[in-house]
Computed example of a mutant assay.
Amino acid sequence: MRIVPTIERRPLPGLLATLVLSLCASLGIALALSSPAEAYEVWVMDQSDTAKESGGFLYIYDGAQLAANPSGAKPKVTIDLGGEVNTFCQEATKKAVRRPHMIFFTKDQSHAILSFLSGQVLFMDAATRKPEACLSMGKNVHAAWPSPDQKMAIAANIAEKKFIRIWTDYAAHKFGFDPEKDVLNLGAMEGGEQPDTAPICPITDASGRYAFITLRGGGLFVVDVTETPMKLVATLNNVDVHPAGCGGIQVGNTLYLNSGGGWPIAPLSYDVYAVDLSTLPKSVSAKLITSRDTQFADSHGMAAVGRYLWSADRAGNNIEVIDTLTNLSVNG
């Protein structure tokens, strides 16, 4: 069973439904199947409270049924996150879960990682849907991304401007971090070129060695997460990479990142960058390959479909497709 896209519903007027990547999950697009005959599921999160100031829903659909009848398909599994999951997390972290915000899957798709804006990261067995661990990241956690080797997950605490490395052993069901060794205080790194270092959506390259941390105020931090303590090896300023990127994926030897909106500094923004990895760890560079900053657009979410990069515009409600051989848009 292959698990691909997810959807997040926010508690906004009209209950605005937004597509979320399983690899970048704030707002994005569905991933294509590797085989037309391959079975898959669609995991959908609803951020609305299902208990007093807590909860949310997780809906799991049969992918084939949803594709055949999008408006009529019903979830095959519905999980009230204000129930068993909330009890589990309250026992582990001493506070309720609220606003399930992003969801990612491990490379082997054995586990789902849910992040809650209330500050918890939940590790769930994808087959049984049972929670295995719930960890507190502090006041907030925006996203938690699993490394390709499945040895760690990296989390972004926006509220306290912290980047956190979680050690993961899925076979042994062990998850944890050392507050002294596995937490990077990004707030201490603020300056003129990176004026607001709150992390938004960190991802790793294919090797799992380097984490690329997009910043709320613009700029980029590249951190070697295999070192202890973690080591900042390269940076870009807020002119090189605009604010609040949330979306990234590696295609071949190139890492693609975006900058987006949703914050007072950049209510709307749409930029996609190609990041050269060849000079790491000495330096890093990013080339702007497409921008819609003069339009009503917001780059939020990214996926690779073969050699093509799909970039989601959540404000424009469309997907830009980029050929990574040329880094040119094929659909404007």
Rank of each mutant, 00 (worst) to 15 (best):
V233E: 03
A17S: 13
E41A: 09
Y256Q: 00
L19H: 02
Q295D: 15
L114V: 14
S48W: 03
R2N: 15
F212I: 01
P202I: 04
A39C: 11
G14I: 09
I113M: 09
T326Q: 10
W145D: 01
V330K: 06
S311P: 00
D224P: 03
A286E: 02
Y61D: 06
P36A: 12
A17P: 07
G218P: 05
S299V: 01
V284N: 04
M137K: 09
T235C: 09
E193K: 15
V225K: 01
G301C: 05
K162N: 02
L186E: 00
F104T: 14
F105E: 03
A51I: 14
P131G: 09
G55R: 08
I166T: 04
C24T: 13
L33W: 02
E53F: 15
I289N: 03
S207E: 09
L325Y: 13
A96N: 12
V305M: 07
N258D: 13
R9P: 06
T324C: 02
P131Q: 11
D276N: 15
P146N: 11
V20E: 03
L255C: 07
K95N: 10
L186A: 00
C246N: 08
N69P: 01
G119E: 02
F177L: 10
S147C: 08
F116E: 05
G83M: 08
T106P: 10
T214S: 14
D182Q: 07
D240L: 03
K95Y: 15
A156K: 01
T235F: 03
P179L: 10
G219Q: 05
F175K: 07
L184M: 15
L220P: 04
S136M: 10
A244Q: 05
T326L: 10
K162W: 01
Y273V: 00
P131H: 10
I3D: 02
S285V: 00
V222Y: 02
F212V: 04
F123Q: 01
W310K: 02
I29W: 03
V141G: 01
D169M: 11
I289M: 04
K282V: 06
V121M: 06
L280D: 05
A198M: 10
K95W: 13
D182C: 08
S26K: 02
L280I: 10
S48N: 13
M137R: 08
A112Q: 08
D196K: 11
I322C: 02
V284S: 07
Y256N: 00
L27H: 04
F88A: 06
K76W: 04
C246L: 07
I249K: 02
R165K: 15
S207H: 07
S147N: 11
L27S: 13
K130Q: 14
A68W: 11
V121Y: 00
R9D: 15
